[in-house]
């Protein structure tokens, strides 16, 4: 299990700066609606890796969902 950290950290969340109170990815995700998928610093994070993913300052997190496309 990833180590929990209480201190604040700033990341890029969907292109905008965001201050988090936790470094656990899984703590951030409940605010998003399923279905979604996650990329951290441009790399895919599979759903089964959410509990083990620790965020650090400056990370770029993308959370995407289905939209129309051609």
């Amino acid at each position: 299990m990833a180590e929990h950290m209480k201190t604040e950290l700033n990341i890029w969340l969907n292109g905008k700066t965001e201050t988090l109170n936790s470094n656990q990815l899984s703590h951030l995700l409940p605010r998003f609606k399923a279905p979604f998928a996650v990329a951290l610093n441009g790399c895919f994070i599979a759903a089964n890796q959410y509990p083990n993913t620790v965020l650090k300052a400056g990370d770029q997190l993308d959370i995407v969902s289905p939209i129309a496309g051609g």
Binding site: G15, K33, I63, S65, P66, I67, A68, G69
Partner: peptide, 22 residues
């Protein structure tokens, strides 16, 4: 049908409607 993925904006509800229709 083709479709895509984009960043989710929690305040927007349109994405859920699209996904349900599809």
């Amino acid at each position: 049908v083709t479709l895509s993925l984009r960043r989710q904006a929690p305040e927007q509800q349109g994405g859920e409607q699209f996904w349900q229709l599809i």
